[in-house]
Design a protein around this nucleic acid. Sequence first.
DNA 1: ATCATGCTTAGCCATGTGACTAACTATACA
DNA 2: TGTATAGTTAGTCACATGGCTAAGCATGAT
Lengths: 115, 115
Amino acid sequence: MAKHDPDLSLLFHALADPTRRAILSRLAKGAAPVSELAAPTGLRLPTVMRHLAVLEEAGLIATAKDGRVRSCAIVPEALTPMRTWLDEQRAIWEARLDRLDDYVMNLMKERANDP
Amino acid sequence: MAKHDPDLSLLFHALADPTRRAILSRLAKGAAPVSELAAPTGLRLPTVMRHLAVLEEAGLIATAKDGRVRSCAIVPEALTPMRTWLDEQRAIWEARLDRLDDYVMNLMKERANDP
DNA sequence: ATCATGCTTAGCCATGTGACTAACTATACA
DNA sequence: TGTATAGTTAGTCACATGGCTAAGCATGAT
């Protein structure tokens, strides 16, 4: 359970932007060149390029240039660390579905210490 | 498949910070007051408070004040939207585990168009 | 009533982020 | 060769983020 996990931070940060998630959804249907990804966003090319750079640094997409066209594709394995983290958390969190009771009981105990 | 999903953005953004993930991990073991959460971070209280505010706005934690102590607890259901998104993506992405082939074939087809 | 504790608010600062325009490069097409 | 196309780079700008200090407020202990 790494305290500083740059992978996870990059991943979550990349996914925190709706534009980037939209690009991913588009790419889920198949590889596409930059312009085609930019079109539905209504954003300028340089802006989209930065989003793509973020996605690529997070390992979520891979790109390659063929002639003057850069083709982008998703990297499915990239979601694995996130899934792992989520499963870890779920394991602990769900083991505590008594959380609310636990929480309330804590408060009550504190109050009880003060008759 | 909402194009603009503020919930997801808030969630992912909240989780993109290692300090906040550490706080969540700590809280997974049970509710705790602000100071106790701040201690292991090495950060000042106001800074930690802001992190807690981000977590709370994302719906990841709930807090309540008892006397002068504010107790914080996780909200397990908060991860559901993220799990849903992840499962959706996995469904599509994994259906395309031929992605690399697909990608390469695309390139080859483009080249083929140019004999 | 006084003081310590625990949080809160206000405000500052450096850096990061997301958007843009404008100018440039490199490939394809005529 | 010249021109359109597809990306790329550089530079600007407003605002968000993450950290801090200093001062304030409410509650519990003496």
